[in-house]
């Protein structure tokens, strides 16, 4: 430990080794899987919504990775089957998230396929769930006196409405909802799929 160069070289070599294991080999393995059958690429509108999702930081409260029934009851919550690597083939960047301050969203398009619901929820989450701590996104909407033709009016419960005004969704809101509705990985998982099976040690079913 009296020479700087070997120290630096060895330290970099160890990092390179770790990088090979944690990045290069998994990349090769995951990359060898084709996109899941049933998965479709995002449309331009959905990609615009995805950009909204990223820029508003939805990922910090919502995961997009349902777990196996061996580990957690995500399936029983309606969040969908455990996701596999092939489900994310078109996700760049990935938005798997690490927090569930809100529910998992990988299949929200399947369990909540109503655009109107999502618009209300984005405009005022607490109109739907009083306990919710999700931010409201009023800047994705416009308050108008009358809806113009082609406008999507946001429905609000009776007690939340403002008389003589209507809430209209901006294109950003429509795109975000389009992205949310595109989150639907309810097609069957490929059998050879890659995922963490560390909780399937049980092997057979009880």
């Amino acid at each position: 430990m009296n020479r700087a160069l070997p120290l630096v070289i060895l330290a970099m070599a160890i990092l390179a080794f770790a990088t090979m294991l944690l990045v290069v080999v998994p990349r090769a393995q995951i990359g060898s899987e084709p996109p899941a059958a049933g998965l479709r690429a995002y449309s331009p509108e959905e990609l615009r919504g995805r950009a909204q999702y990223m820029s508003l930081g939805c990922v910090y409260c919502h995961s997009q990775q349902p777990r196996t029934p061996d580990q957690a009851p995500d399936g029983e919550r309606g969040w969908g089957r455990p996701s596999v690597a092939a489900d994310y083939a078109y996700d760049s960047p990935h938005l798997m998230g690490t927090m569930r301050t809100g529910p998992d969203l990988l299949n929200v398009g399947a369990r909540l396929p109503s655009t109107a619901w999502h618009l209300t929820h984005l405009y005022r989450p607490r109109a739907i769930a009083p306990w919710s701590i999700m931010p409201s996104y009023p800047f994705l909407f416009e308050i108008k006196d009358h809806a113009a033709p082609g406008d999507t009016v946001v429905w609000l419960p009776r007690e939340q409405r403002v008389a003589g005004k209507v809430v209209v969704a901006r294109p950003e809101a429509m795109a975000l909802v389009a992205y949310l509705l595109s989150l639907d990985r309810t097609y069957p998982a490929p059998a050879s799929a890659i995922r963490d099976d560390g909780y399937s040690r049980v092997g057979g079913k009880p």
Binding site: W79, A110, R111, L112, P113, S114, T115, W155, D184
Partner: peptide, 18 residues
């Protein structure tokens, strides 16, 4: 407001999670 059929399907058939 939100239509039943938007989530439960036009024929009430439901869908994954609904």
């Amino acid at each position: 407001g939100w239509a039943c059929s938007a989530c439960h399907g036009a024929a009430g058939e439901g869908r994954s999670g609904v």
